[in-house]
Write a protein that binds this DNA or RNA. Structure first.
Lengths: 248, 248
DNA sequence: TTCGATTTGTCCGTATGTATT
DNA sequence: TAATACATACGGACAAATCGA
């Protein structure tokens, strides 16, 4: 038989359809019966999938009325699933721009917090993560993993679980978007690794010496250079805003 | 009969138990059969509740193994439910401190974004929200509602849906925490409304004149004065950090 | 207001796949 | 290998709620 967890599959299927706009806000979904027939699953599976969507704020059900797609401002955007489905949606430049915007706001501030709240043990973990980053300069796979863990170790030093969770969710989504659109971005990824490494080192040094301001600015510059280059492709110009903005 | 939606009730019940620590990470939940008997509901209801918890990253199920509580760093903290359950948890000072910390990082930056990206129409909405704030100075109920909508209108001017969602979730949680602990905080809420109103006006003026820096600082000061006063009560001192921190 | 139709909500008996022992 | 325990999945039945006539 298949890979088990039919409800999970249907959940992702419906979630993607909602985030892609195929199912618009306010629209009534087919009945549980119909949905089950359409997807060849039992009512139980369909109901569990709808329950998952409901927990994410995407739909709401009422007897007789049916299951309707909630308004966008009711969606739980900051969950792994919703963010991932948003990345999967067809014209996602606008979304990625917004996500990068939020990241450039949060991560520098989080790093400043790390410089403030981090313990010596936290700083030691950061240094070890940086060493792994140094040693993985040649290998692209290793570098991506080490880079993720380096950022993670720094935010962990903020000693704020909520901050760590938030930045992780963001990085997961941006990393996922890079994976799914690798052909276009591959060529542009030819950054000189030495420069990138120096920027990482600057952030590490600032944090470990409790230099809040330096950490803030260092991370801002790092994000500015490593940020995803969202080029203005065919659908991107509609909501394209001031492209020459700088950090505040 | 009761208020319908048994699965929703059970979902909240289990979620609160997990967030409160009654069900620890790695612990195996009772079987669906047992859970159903314990709560006097059918297996269907139990399964739907577990599906909701699964969508929030709180539990994971495997055949034969059972349903286990996920590690804290796997939880989807930034959903309305999880944040609310965290507020409901017994010693929530540490949590509220972290939440306020994140808010003081995000909202000023979001307001600066609003000064940058807002349209004239957005600014008009902000002014109207401020007028409602002025007119509701005497009434505490009305002021809370008008205050919420004022903040909302400003963040909406950032033209960033993700930012709006994030700040809303935060404000909802903090507002909810104030509701549930109103007896202690009630006395301390005797702020001079004129001063508070002036701070709001300062933020509005800065945003509507596209003064990013002024907006950032104004919102920082506003949050500094309106912030929830988490007094060091009996359980609060364990992880109490530097209380005299200033914004960066 | 009453009634009927529709849809979700709920319950339960049963069967299957899977991982542990 | 076989037995066991558990989640997963199926489907028939009924209750409850809401809408429209």
């Amino acid at each position: 038989m298949q890979s088990l967890k039919l409800s999970g599959q249907l959940l992702h299927e419906l979630g993607r359809q909602i985030l892609s706009g195929a199912l618009e806000s306010g629209q009534v979904l087919p009945t549980v019966e119909t949905l089950s027939e359409m997807n060849g699953v039992s009512r139980t599976v369909t109901r569990e999938a709808l329950k998952g969507l409901s927990a994410l704020g995407l739909v709401e059900s009422q007897p007789k009325v049916g299951t309707i797609v909630c308004a966008r401002d009711h969606w739980q955007w900051w969950s792994r699933e919703v963010l991932q489905w948003s990345v999967d949606a067809k014209p996602n430049q606008h979304f990625l721009l917004q996500l990068s915007e939020v990241r450039r706001v949060i991560e520098p501030a989080a790093v400043a917090l790390a410089a403030q709240n981090g313990t010596d043990k936290d700083f030691q973990v950061i240094r070890e993560a940086f060493e792994r980053l140094e040693q993985s300069v040649g290998n692209e796979e290793d570098w991506a993993k080490a880079d993720y863990e380096f950022h993670d170790s720094i935010i962990a030093a903020s000693r704020n679980e909520l901050m760590l969770s938030l930045t992780r969710v963001m990085r997961d989504a941006l990393l996922y978007s890079r994976k799914t659109t690798i052909p276009i971005l591959k060529e542009k990824r030819e950054e000189p690794p030495v420069a990138a490494l120096n920027q990482h080192r600057a952030v590490m040094d600032a944090v470990c010496s409790r230099d809040e301001q330096g950490a803030y600015q260092g991370m801002t510059q790092l994000l500015e250079s490593v940020k995803v280059l969202i080029q203005d492709s065919e659908e991107g110009r509609k909501q394209n805003r001031n492209p020459s903005r700088s950090f505040q």
